[in-house]
Computed example of a mutant assay.
Amino acid sequence: MYTKKNFLFGLCCSVFFYGCTSDSLSDLTELDNITEVKYNQNIKSIIDNNCISCHGATPTSGAPNSLHTYELVKDAVLNLDLIDRISRAEGTSGAMPLGGPRLSQSDINKVIQWNTDGLME
């Protein structure tokens, strides 16, 4: 009986100690690779999925400008308040996309970061 207790105690201790590691929470959490945001890699898909239906090569639905090229999107950020328009609350006057759901905060942050990083193609 005494041997069984020692064996079970040893087994439990082994499982406990070997089950623990020296990993920290940061080791267990996948971190985003922070890189520079670029138009072709990060922004074009946001524009294509959310803006091109109205802001295509030939704007429709009353859109005043096209966003179908890097140069036009860059100009919209620099001169047409694109970041302000996509950052407005859904339903607010001038909010984009017009009548659609607001972009995810993650997508808005990418556009802001793209601007901060220098609007690289």
Rank of each mutant, 00 (worst) to 15 (best):
T92K: 11
I46D: 10
D81K: 10
H68N: 15
N50R: 01
S45D: 14
S87A: 10
I47K: 05
T60Y: 08
C51P: 05
G62F: 05
P59E: 12
D75M: 04
A76P: 03
L80V: 09
I47A: 09
G56F: 15
T69K: 11
S61H: 12
H68G: 04
N65L: 14
S87Y: 00
I47Q: 02
T69G: 11
I43L: 07
L78C: 03
L67V: 01
D84Q: 11
E90Q: 15
T92V: 10
D81R: 08
E71T: 09
S87L: 06
N49T: 10
I52C: 07
V73H: 00
S87I: 05
A76G: 02
K74E: 01
T58V: 15
G62D: 04
A57Q: 15
V77T: 02
V73L: 00
N65W: 14
S61E: 11
K44V: 08
P59K: 08
I86W: 03
I86Q: 01
N49R: 11
D48S: 15
L67R: 05
S66Y: 09
D81Y: 10
P59R: 06
A63D: 00
L80T: 11
T58Q: 15
N49H: 11
N79D: 00
A76F: 01
K74S: 04
D84N: 14
G91D: 05
S53W: 13
I46H: 07
H68P: 01
I46N: 02
I46T: 07
N79C: 00
R85G: 02
H55Y: 09
L78A: 05
T60E: 12
T92I: 10
L67M: 06
D75I: 01
I83P: 03
S87K: 03
E71D: 11
S66F: 05
K44R: 08
L72Q: 10
T92Q: 13
V77D: 06
G91M: 00
L80P: 04
P59I: 10
H68C: 09
T92D: 11
I46V: 05
R88E: 08
I47R: 00
L82Y: 07
H55T: 08
S53I: 15
R88Y: 09
D84Y: 14
T69A: 08
I43T: 06
